[in-house]
Design a protein around this nucleic acid. Structure first.
Lengths: 111, 111
DNA sequence: TTCTTATGGCCTATTTATGGATCAAACGTG
DNA sequence: CACGTTTGATCCATAAATAGGCCATAAGAA
C-alpha cells in the first residue's frame, strides 16, 4: 500500500493543485526562481515546490504567503472574490446564531 | 514573550481569517454544528475551530475540505474564480519556461 | 555543444500541527 | 427561568510538516 497520509476529498485536492498552479504561474511571470520565492516567503525551497505541486499537507499560512508574493489574490482587498457573493444578503436575515440547534443528523448535502 | 510561531504577512493572515469566516458562515447557513462538520471532514472538532478562527497553521487539505463541505468554493468547477483570469491568455504567449534565468535579485514588487 | 543554474526528488533532525479528552461559559429552547 | 447542547479554550501524546542538506537531471545562455 502506498502512503495513506491524511485523506482528502477530490475537490480539496483539486483546489490545492489549482492554487499551486496559479502560484507557479505567478512566480514564473515575475521571473522568480523557486529559491527566490522561498526566501521572500521565509520558507524552504522544498516547501515552495510542494505548494506548487498542490500538496494538501502544507499550511495555509505558507501557501497564502507564497500566493501573495507572486500576486495571486483569492480575496480582493476587502471583498471576497467568490462566484456567489449573494450570501452576504442572507446573513442579514439570519443574523447568524452563535450556536446551532441540531436536530437533523444529516444536513442537506449538495456534492 | 508571546508566541513567535511561524511568522506570516498581514495579507496571508487576513486571507486565512476571511476564509475561516466564510466557512463558519457556510456552516451556520447549513445548520451544522462544529462537531458535525468535523466529523464529515474527518478531522477533530478543535481543528475546525482553529480553521474558522483563521489559524494559519492549518493544512490546506483540512481547510479546503471544510470549505467544500459547507459550500465555500474558491474555484468554480473547472474555472478559476479570480478577479483577473486574463492571465490564461498570457500562458499561450509565453509558453511558460520551466526554469527561470534569474539575473535580477530583486523582482518587481507590488505590495 | 559546453557551461551554469534551476528544478525536483529523497533523506533525516527538528519543529509543529493534530487528535482526544476535559472543563467552563455561552447559547437556544421548552 | 432551568435544561441540555454548543462552543471555546486548554493540556498532553503522537503524528506530521518543515528545514536543510544532498544529488541527478533538465533547462537556458553562450
Amino acid at each position: 500500500m502506498p502512503k495513506a497520509k491524511r485523506p482528502v476529498s477530490p475537490y480539496a485536492a483539486d483546489a490545492a493543485v489549482r492554487l499551486g498552479q496559479l502560484i507557479r504561474r505567478g512566480r514564473i511571470d515575475r521571473h522568480m526562481t523557486v529559491a527566490a520565492l522561498a526566501e521572500r516567503a521565509g520558507v524552504s525551497r522544498g516547501l515552495i515546490q510542494r505548494i506548487e505541486a498542490g500538496d494538501t499537507g502544507c499550511t495555509i499560512g505558507a501557501v497564502f504567503e507564497a500566493a501573495a508574493i507572486v500576486g495571486v489574490r483569492l480575496f480582493d482587498a476587502g471583498q471576497v472574490t467568490m462566484s456567489r457573493d449573494v450570501e452576504s444578503a442572507r446573513e442579514l436575515l439570519t443574523l447568524l446564531p452563535k450556536a446551532i440547534r441540531s436536530h437533523r443528523t444529516e444536513p442537506d448535502d449538495d456534492f
